[in-house]
Amino acid sequence: MHKNGFFSLLFHALFVTFIVAPLVVVMAMAFTSKGYLSLPTEGLSLRWFRALADNQEMLDAFALSIKLGLASATIAALLAIPAALAISRYDFPGRGAVTGFLLSPLMIPSVVLGIAFLRFFSLAQIGGSFWALTLTHVIVVLPYALRLTLASTIGLERDIEHAALSLGASRWTAFYRVVLPRIRTGVVGGWMLAFIQSFDELTMTVFVATPGTTTLPVAMYNQISQTIDPLITAVSTVLIVGTLLLMLILDRMVGLDRVLIGEGK
């Protein structure tokens, strides 16, 4: 880590440039005073941020996406914990099949899922509700939550749980006081990934979203397919800055490297 050679530095510099440059350009464009997409060459303006604040549709979509992300990530994480514990602990018949099934949305194209859900909801007549949308997102994000939770339960020693039991803890107490703290980073990491996936999901959601349940990506997509005004860059800027702040806070609280890379201590 300490001896970064010339090529290593060059590589990192190029990498960062290619990742960051588009973001910087988008953010810069948000401050234009013009009515079309352009870099703010003739003075900065907060015009498009004001337009965003007045755009109720966009704000509703944003709130819905947050709510949807929180709900689906939380449900997925709660389902992932017992599933991961069972998969890593017991060698039950059909274990491979269950694991495959739970991770399968990762392998099914989102378009296919979207069409399937659309058909299903119209048959079952439950389309257009928040919980129907949540259900679809839980299914799409569960594999992400499960992947990371599994990573932390697979190496988990059975002994410490046994030790807790032998000391008189009930099964629930042993889980809550001893097992959960050990797999916390995996669960939190899985939750975060699930939230991001849900917040970000467009391909499947466009099929099932209705005027009452428009998520932010769908609203943004609708926006740019109708007009090309810099409002979209203002939304993007808010998202980029918001994500950055969230990352900083999470890093302070749990340590991002530990959550995303694994137990580093």
Partner: peptide, 16 residues
């Protein structure tokens, strides 16, 4: 097991 009231020392120590 939680009702047997035994003291167990594990090979891995199994400290929390």
């Amino acid at each position: 097991p939680e009702q047997r009231g035994l003291g167990i020392v594990f090979q891995s120590y199994a400290l929390f």
